[in-house]
Computed example of a mutant assay.
Amino acid sequence: MNKPLSETTVLITGASRGIGAAVAERFASVGMRVVIHYLNAHEAANEVARACMAHGGQVLTVTADLRSREQLQRMHEKMQQHGMMPDILVNNAGVSHFGLLSDITEEDWDRVMDINLKGMFLCTQLFMPHMIRQKYGRIINVSSVWGISGASCEVVYSTAKGGVNAFTKSLAKELAPSGVTVNAVAPGVVETTMNDRLDADEQQALKSEIPLGRFAQPDEIASLVYFIALPESGYITGQIISPNGGWLT
C-alpha cells in the first residue's frame, strides 16, 4: 500500500497519558490522522488532541471501555462515520498490579487480565478486518519486559503481558498472508505515572540495575512504535522488541 501519510490513520488505545500520549503525538508530527482512545480521562485526552492538532493533522477522540464489545462497536461506528478506520492499531491501554500472589483477589486478577488481554483481543478483532480487506496493516501491542522475564510481586501483570507476547507471535503468523504485520514493544521501566508507587530510594535502586542508569522516556518508546509502523518495516513481524536500557539481554 502506498498511502500518503496524510491519509494514513492510527488508533492508539489508552492515549490520554504516558506512552500512549507520546505515541499519538509522534504519529501526528508526520501528518498522520490520529484517533485518541480513552476511558474516563476526558480532559487529558483533549489535551493530547490539542497537542496533536498543533501539527496540522486530523485528530479524533473516542471513548470506550475496552472490556465491552458493545462500547467498542459504538467507537468503531464513530470512526467509520468520520472516515478514520485505522491502518495502524496500537494496543497500548493497560493496567498493572503490585502485590504477592497470595494477596491478589479474583477481582484484581480479572481486572488486569480483562484490560491487558481481553481489551487487546476485542479491539484487534474489531479493526483487523479493515486491514485484511486492504491487504495492509500494522498491529503493535505494548507489552512489558516483565512479560519476558517475569517479576516477583507482579505475577498477574507479568502473566498478562506474557499473554500479549504469545498473542502477538500467533496473530503475526495468521495475518502475514494478508499483508498485516503484528509486533509487540516490551519496554523496561518508563518514566510514567504507572511507576508512582516507587519512592525515590526504590527508583534509584532500580536505576542502578539498568546498565544505562536511567528509566526510558515515553518519547523513546514512541519512536520505536513509529518505526515498526512504517511501510518500510514490512518484513518485521511476530517480534517482541524490548527497549530496556540493557537490563534484559
Rank of each mutant, 00 (worst) to 15 (best):
R133Y: 14
D108L: 08
V142C: 05
I236C: 13
Q80H: 10
D196H: 13
R67Q: 12
R26E: 06
A184P: 01
P218G: 05
I221L: 09
E174P: 00
S242D: 09
G245W: 01
I36G: 01
A28N: 04
A186V: 07
H42Y: 13
A151K: 06
P129E: 11
M113P: 06
Q239S: 12
S144T: 00
L230A: 13
M120R: 03
E47Q: 14
G83P: 08
V48C: 13
F215D: 00
V164D: 04
I104D: 08
S102I: 15
N91I: 04
E47T: 11
E174R: 10
T105K: 05
D103E: 14
A54M: 11
V10Y: 03
D65E: 11
M85K: 08
A51S: 14
V10T: 02
G20C: 02
A41P: 04
V48F: 10
V155D: 09
E70K: 14
R67A: 15
D219M: 11
K161T: 04
D103H: 14
T63A: 15
Q73N: 13
F227L: 09
I104R: 02
Q134G: 01
Y157I: 02
D219V: 07
A151T: 01
V35A: 06
M32E: 13
I115T: 08
M53R: 15
Y136G: 00
V189A: 11
I228W: 08
G150V: 02
R197S: 12
P231R: 04
Q217R: 15
Q81R: 14
V180D: 02
G137S: 07
R69V: 13
H37R: 10
N195A: 01
E174L: 03
D201A: 15
V182D: 02
R138A: 09
A166W: 04
G238Y: 04
D87G: 10
L72W: 10
R133Q: 15
G238N: 04
V62N: 01
I210Q: 01
M113G: 06
L198G: 07
G94I: 02
G179S: 09
L66G: 03
C52F: 10
P243A: 11
N244W: 01
P218F: 08
K173S: 07
Y38T: 03
K3P: 01
H37G: 01
M79N: 10
N116S: 10
P211C: 07
V180H: 01
I148P: 02
T192P: 07
K78T: 15
V164K: 00
